[in-house]
């Protein structure tokens, strides 16, 4: 089973509709005047951007420029860090993620996340890892239903054929690349509307990296994907939009320098700093 590959061309400019694929749960994210703090430290300053549904948006920039902090603010993981604080608004299809009545837990049910280091739950089998999101959030289902979701998620993450005969074995027995795909299966098993990926391939070999990039291209048919990466080729290959973050100096907040289609960022960026960075003359 494979999802239909997206055939529609990348929209030329931000503002496209959400429903390019039927029954797709993907939602757009509108970020406005977002400022992020760790205690007194101003980590990210004045970010405004629109993240398109059914597209891959890559966040690039040198280390410490706030990409990961920005990513983690999208599903309210930033505030889990002691002293983490947010100003501004993040709207998921118009709904304010930071609204006063919004439960961060329900936000995270709609915006899933894949981390830099593969982190399957060590006490759980491969099956239970994939089913963890559904089991632990008490969205109870009968066994057959759960079986189907686990199989579908593992197939979407291109892991099913490798693990279908050993679903009861512990998830940490898999190789690094397989573990990361297991984590992706775990994330998409709860059917989020957005999937955030924080350097998902930085600890993987080139083959697993390619598998995960192919996977992103397939997944965007159903989800909105935001990925932080240090790998220019990866951003160029797999993303539709690219946001370049930068800092003006040590201790200064990170800012969004330029946000555009990936094609534009990599061929004809408006800002000289972006051109320096993507061409390797910088950072």
């Amino acid at each position: 089973m494979s999802e239909p590959a997206p055939t529609a061309a990348v929209p030329a400019a931000p503002g496209g509709g959400a429903a390019t694929v039927d029954a797709s749960p993907a939602k757009a994210i509108d970020v406005r005047d977002l400022n992020l703090f760790y205690g007194a430290f101003h980590a990210v300053k004045d970010v405004t951007m629109r993240i398109e549904p059914n597209a891959v948006t890559a966040l690039i920039g040198s280390s410490g420029c706030g990409k990961s902090t920005f990513l983690r603010s999208l599903n309210r993981m930033h505030e889990l860090v002691p002293g983490g604080r947010v100003e501004g608004s993040v709207r998921l299809d118009g709904e304010d993620v930071y609204g006063p009545d919004v439960d961060p837990v329900s936000v995270r049910r709609q915006i899933g996340m894949v981390f830099q280091a593969p982190n399957p739950f060590p006490t759980m089998s491969i099956y239970d890892n994939v089913a963890a999101g559904l089991k632990l959030t008490r969205r109870r289902r009968d066994r057959a239903d759960l079986d189907e979701i686990v199989e579908r998620s593992l197939r979407r993450a291109h892991l099913w054929d490798e693990v279908k005969d050993r679903l009861d074995e512990p998830g940490i027995g898999l190789s690094g690349g397989q573990q990361q795909r297991l984590c992706i299966a775990r994330t998409i098993a709860v059917e989020p509307e957005v999937v955030l990926m924080d350097e998902p391939a930085s600890a993987l070999d080139p083959i697993s990296t390619l598998a995960i990039e192919d996977l992103m291209v397939e997944l965007k048919a159903r989800y909105t994907i935001v990925i932080v990466t240090h790998n220019m080729q990866q951003a160029g290959r797999a993303s539709d939009y690219t946001a370049f973050f930068n800092i003006s100096g040590v201790g200064e907040p990170g800012t969004l320098v330029e946000f555009d289609t990936t094609e534009k960022i990599f061929s004809n960026p408006s800002e000289p700093a972006t051109e320096d960075y993507v061409s390797g003359r910088f950072g």
Binding site: N75, A132, T137, T187
Partner: peptide, 14 residues
């Protein structure tokens, strides 16, 4: 590891 807690939170687990 904190990564396990974060993985759980990111799934929407309280």
């Amino acid at each position: 590891p904190d990564g396990l807690r974060e993985a759980s939170y990111a799934l929407g687990v309280p």
